[in-house]
């Protein structure tokens, strides 16, 4: 039995809707991971111990366990505690927090690498420490860390396939749906791969634009 890609067009709308869900979940999780990453970094570096310690424990938990398990825990596990999240929301939270932890590691390093003259200059103008962090140090740290965060975001896009297992009908799950109907796994997985790649290229283009836009301010 050879390959037959003529079965694909009939399911293209299913696949394309899957692509849209993949983009939606990736964008939402990316935003959460970005701002969550900044927040976690600031807490890890500057918050009092009663905030810092729980956050460190949380980070350790998210870095030390499989993302798949985290998704199961958030989607299926939390129901037992009376928290019944829609699959999409659970997916965004799981992916977003997971990558927020990774982003936070990057941002922490970048914050510490900002020249200490920057903090001094802001303080001599009369800014408080938190004002100096907010207006001077953190924007520079974030700017410096855009390229590696971009890499994390591409990893996030690829890992978004995992949310298919909790029933978000994104690209991977839509492909499986089509396969279930046609028994043509190679064709549909190959098509899915092509779409992932295209979305990936789009994301890289966006990251490059952001990098270019911030290049003047170095």
């Amino acid at each position: 039995m050879g390959l037959d890609f003529t079965v694909v067009p009939a399911y293209l709308d299913t696949i394309l809707i899957g692509v849209l869900w993949t983009i939606a979940i990736t964008v939402c999780a990316a935003i959460l991971s970005f701002f969550g990453g900044i927040l976690l970094a600031v807490i890890a570096l500057y918050a009092p111990w009663f905030l810092r310690l729980p956050v460190r424990f949380f980070a350790w938990l998210f870095m030390g366990t499989p993302l798949l398990l985290q998704l199961f825990l958030i989607y299926f596990g939390l129901v037992q505690l009376g928290i019944d999240l829609p699959a999409f929301v659970a997916g965004v939270i799981g992916l977003g927090l997971h990558f927020a932890v990774y982003n936070s590691e990057l941002i922490q390093t970048a914050i510490l690498a900002v020249d200490k003259g920057q903090m001094e200059a802001a303080r001599t103008l009369g800014c408080s420490r938190s004002q100096a962090l907010r207006k001077v140090v953190i924007p520079q740290a974030v700017r410096d860390v855009i390229p590696p965060i971009g890499n994390n975001m591409i990893a996030l896009l690829k890992d978004s396939a995992l949310v298919s297992v909790i029933g978000v009908s994104e690209l991977t799950l839509s492909s499986q749906l089509a396969i279930g109907r046609t028994y043509r796994p190679f064709e549909f997985y190959a098509v899915a791969a092509v779409f992932y790649y295209i979305v990936n290229l789009g994301m890289e283009a966006v990251m490059r634009r952001i990098e270019r836009k911030t290049s003047l301010s170095r």
């Binding site: 200059a121 802001a122 303080r123 001599t124 001077v136 520079q140 911030t214």
Partner: peptide
């Protein structure tokens, strides 16, 4: 410190802000 201006050997301008925003940041904020 608002009453004491300081100028550093290595300038310590804020590289992520334009010249204008370097000057206006503190007066706007404080």
């Amino acid at each position: 410190r608002q009453q004491v201006g300081m100028v550093f050997q290595h300038f310590n301008l804020f590289p992520h802000l334009s010249v204008r925003d370097n000057v206006t940041m503190a007066p706007k904020l404080l």
